[in-house]
Design a protein around this nucleic acid. Sequence first.
DNA 1: CTGAAAGCGCTTACAG
DNA 2: CTGAAAGCGCTTACAG
Lengths: 346, 346
Amino acid sequence: MATMKDIARLSGVSVATVSYVLNKTRKMSSEVEERVLRAVRQTNYCPNTIAKSLRMKKTNIVGVLVEDIRGMPVPEIVDGISDFLEQSGYQMLLYNLRLLDKLLNQYDKLNKYIEDINQGMRLMENACVDGIIYVAMHDRHITGIRQPVNIPMAYAYATADNEEACSVTYENQRSAYGITHKLIQANHQRIALVAGHPASADARLRLEGYRAAMDDAGLYVPGEYIRWGDWGYESGVEQCNVLMEMSVRPTAIFAMNDTMATGCYRAIKNHGLGIPADISLVGFDNREFAQLVNPPLTTVSLPNRQIGTRAAKLLVGSIHKRDVRTPNIVLPCSIIEGESIRVIAK
Amino acid sequence: MATMKDIARLSGVSVATVSYVLNKTRKMSSEVEERVLRAVRQTNYCPNTIAKSLRMKKTNIVGVLVEDIRGMPVPEIVDGISDFLEQSGYQMLLYNLRLLDKLLNQYDKLNKYIEDINQGMRLMENACVDGIIYVAMHDRHITGIRQPVNIPMAYAYATADNEEACSVTYENQRSAYGITHKLIQANHQRIALVAGHPASADARLRLEGYRAAMDDAGLYVPGEYIRWGDWGYESGVEQCNVLMEMSVRPTAIFAMNDTMATGCYRAIKNHGLGIPADISLVGFDNREFAQLVNPPLTTVSLPNRQIGTRAAKLLVGSIHKRDVRTPNIVLPCSIIEGESIRVIAK
DNA sequence: CTGAAAGCGCTTACAG
DNA sequence: CTGAAAGCGCTTACAG
């Protein structure tokens, strides 16, 4: 590999001049410039970024720490991050914490793995990244992460007890309100809930949204209409079975994610009932299969990709010391219209 | 941030000694060693990997170039890669080519984007990575990638016209043979095929596997039983509709992926027929929803995670100049038993 | 056994 | 206008 010294020798100038020409950091006679550029082409020279980083104390690398690259929203968030970073001239160092299996049904036990996280942070710090983005796979408030000094940080899909860090999340509670309201607008009154795992913040937030929508509409929620699942398919089947066997059956169900909603499809059909003819159903997450089930599911689409781009944007802003006016962003979701809601005549 | 110089001053030794102690590259009196280590703890010192990389001409970073992080097998492959790399002391620089939308239904047009790929390669080269893994999202043979000299390379989920590179793929054709054979073993004779997009290598390979299985069993395949789709849900519905309306209907269908298989579910049910009572069905890919449909789909599970770990292993072997005896690995798939096959009595 | 010094490939303050 | 030289933070061949 050619170095700057080689280019200097080949074009008969000093290494300083080569540097100035390549970085356009000093005006040069076009004759010198031409000589240098010719040598560059001839040798296929490209500058060593390691040496540059050492000298400049800036690597143009952003560390991305993901809870699990396989986690539902993560690839899309990373896609958004990579898009923005590339445009801004940054590269991405990815560290995968691999917490998917470990955290399953232990949504509130992230601090059991805080040491793993801090080790990842330390690796990023050692690699001299210019900034760090933490990508969660559940909406949560994170405590106890050791924030490296002088390295800006952003959280995607989560918030943290870190005054200096930015965060980008989505309107969890408000969207649960919205999708519940959708059922109310279709004149449903007996709306049951198949909730996610009670230990997860998502489940609590979506429950609040559901309750608020029901309250605002003056609709009563019998205690037994709130069925706690664990986000998994089987729990959707089981809890929906319970609902289907009640003496006063709900006419509509809000399942807190699409996986459990798919379980509800199964339970409803097993009871010889139709969707939406007998039971209306809505989900959450807009998973790929939500449009493949029969009938297509009405659900909530999360702004995952945008969470990534915005988090990257906030981080790059912090790196450049531009004042970041809104360090905590909460993005809206949108409702995807399926065919799983029946409008009841008044 | 403390540097080695600070540690040397604090512990009253030379920077050379500090380096030797920290890297355990020379025996030191335990007294000196203790002094150095105390200074390290006291200052929370950690070595600057950039400086180390420059000096050693080795970054301990592997570049991972993915066609699209959202592509179906990619997160799992990257998970496998990250696992092996972490254990081997390497970090991962991720570059996302974002080709998912661009390549949709243009499976054979990768060379339109060869410039994008080579730019990614160049970025990795400039970053002085110790090796590069290219992660494809379709099984294909890649030509025209500019291989940087002196940087080992591995391909995951694809092969390449590159004598020096390793590759890890899966038994595409053989698995199609296997899943077809599964239907034959259940005494099906009229087995139709809902094929993927004809421009994709996957579709051709799986077709060959299907044909071989039918041939070996002495079963005749009417031309009209081979229905070309495009991997998408709608094409599954459409092609299966055609099959369902034939005067001599097949008793079983092999859909080349789970998405199209799900489309077949819809078409079969729309014709008032049952799965597997009237029509047996198998898929390919073992997508998450394959077990959520009703009845669960019998399908083929790809060794995605393993493709990642093996590719990383081959690459790290090449970096360490260990002779890599099997540079081209083809991994087996496994069949996931659902309830979508009816065994026909002889 | 320990340390002074060269050098990895760049950038930039400084001198001519 | 151009270049010699210092220095970023390490490792290691070399000398004492």
